[in-house]
Design a binder for these strands. Sequence first.
DNA 1: CTCCCGATAT
DNA 2: ATATCAGGAG
Length: 218
Amino acid sequence: MTASKLSNFPQIWELLKKEYPDPQPALHFKNPLELLVATILSAQSTDVQINKVTSELFKKYRSVFDYADADISELEKDIYSTGFYRNKAKHLQQSARVIIEDFGGEVPSKMEDLLKLPGVARKTANIVLARGFGVKAGIAVDTHVKRLATRLGFTENKDPVKIEKDLMELVDRNEWDDFSLTLILHGRNVCFARKPACGQCVVHHLCPSSINPISKQL
DNA sequence: CTCCCGATAT
DNA sequence: ATATCAGGAG
């Protein structure tokens, strides 16, 4: 929590906003249920892979009852290529049953309720709340947000919940959702996990982790 | 902390 | 062959 590193935040965020105006989610969905399902499936997978699976899945499973009553091994096959398919199938079915039994069959729109669904923690809940219901409950911290927030010096914490808290203090509440999406886009396009392309980064001169030694000074 | 796990890029 | 991907549960 050193003030020197955090001081770059306003400039970095302004430049990233200019680089990614109107960032949009990559997952395809038409309603809160589809968003919830796609986000549960997205764990440790790519959105390209998830969209490939959900384009068929959403034709077959149209309501929470379709998931609740599904044959579990059939559901596992239907989501197989997303990875972690046993856990995810179980989570989808059990979440659907909780939604039916405790929430009147409607995907809940409160953080407290979403966290009662198996397979849903803060990252997934934040996405569903922000994009599904327009509720600003927090900032979705996924692997990209975690990596970039650390590299850019926005946090020194490693626990996603603590990182989220740090970010919520830095970012204006109205920009929470855009902030997540922007960091994800920049992480996918430039600030790669393995070999960040600092030479192509619009904020490399402000980044404490920039690999380019020339532009780090001044 | 470990485990879950397939698809893709390097 | 290994690292990584809109993570979460036990």
